[in-house]
Design a protein around this nucleic acid. Structure first.
Lengths: 187, 187
DNA sequence: GTCTATAGGAGGATAGAC
DNA sequence: GTCTATCCTCCTATAGAC
């Protein structure tokens, strides 16, 4: 059993994922955490303050996930494939990508910062692995690794969007496989 | 054309784009439309009903935009490039892609349907043009056109997400150019 | 630290007058 | 068709007791 402060942060993480910032009320967070109003306003200044803590924590939790695949075993191309094909809660959406639609999140540097850092860090790491792949002769050498890495991250985020619109995880898979098929050197 | 009903729909379209479904209140729509509560509830059953009309209209307006590029002049690859490079309000986000984050939108088939149709229609059209390009020898023949078309649509949607997170339109451009660079036959 | 009480405002909608 | 009045709930936060 964790303390109330931790439970509040975890509940906020879940609700921000499910309903976004605007759709998440302090009351709902308290209820899910089993904490009262007094408890929440003792530990945090308000909704935005709690959301900052929750988003920071979610961002911290996501970095090791991508590192696990990108810094894992296998050839560079294998690692990029493993990252893109990693199991994801597609229909639930991206924990952080979802939040950038919220105007209040984008406007607050403390809310947006950690999200931006997750994406920027992942793009950089993917680009580095792609460059390894180019040197190894696995990946087309005629493309800009940074641009392609950005495109691959966009495929993941856009895959979430298309899959939710279609309510079918297959649309995510199609996007990822389409992107991966373009990555290899044509025979 | 200038009646209250139309103004209400147009105002709802703008607000849904800016703030999403959850973040848009009937009051805000009325204020922007210069219409009173009585007027809105005379023309529509409520918020969801008005949102349905607004989303249908937005979806209708988006189809010709994509057709303009995909069915335009130039070679197949030129048309795909023109579509991906078309000017878009990147930092404002996608009019329809934004909405699929909203749980209430995804849950209501009448709200989700038109959005899904926009994406599905665009994917099909892009795939057809890609197949033309493959036959013309412009596009790699060894890839699945449907999957690649899905990937390209995902790049657009994901480009919006990454650009908003970074608050920089360049991130969208990088994603698009990275994807396009993979499309051509390697020299 | 956590509880209850309190509060002004916004959200979403209904009813009846004009 | 549009207006105003009214309703109840939820939102977000503050105050003070325990």
């Amino acid at each position: 059993m964790d303390d109330a402060r931790t439970r509040l942060i975890e509940s906020a993480q879940e609700l921000l994922w499910e309903r976004g910032y605007t759709g998440t009320s302090p009351k709902a967070i308290q209820d899910r955490a089993g904490a009262g109003q007094g408890s929440m306003y003792h530990h945090f200044n308000g909704k935005a303050d709690l959301a900052r803590a929750a988003i920071r924590r979610t961002a911290e939790e996501m970095v090791p996930r991508s590192r696990a695949h990108l810094d894992g075993p296998g050839s560079p191309l294998d690692r990029v494939r493993a990252y893109l094909r990693a199991e994801r809660p597609v229909l639930r959406g991206c924990r952080v990508g979802r939040l950038v639609q919220d105007q209040e999140v984008v406007s607050d540097p403390e809310l947006r910062g950690p999200i931006d850092a997750v994406f920027s860090g992942a793009i950089e790491r993917v680009a580095a692995v792609l460059r390894e792949g180019q040197e190894a002769g696995e990946v087309r050498p005629d493309v800009d690794a940074d641009q392609v890495a950005t495109a691959l991250m966009a495929v993941i985020q856009g895959g979430y969007v298309l899959a939710r619109a279609h309510q079918d995880e297959a649309r995510y898979t199609a996007a990822v496989e389409g992107a991966l098929s373009l990555l290899t050197i044509v025979g």
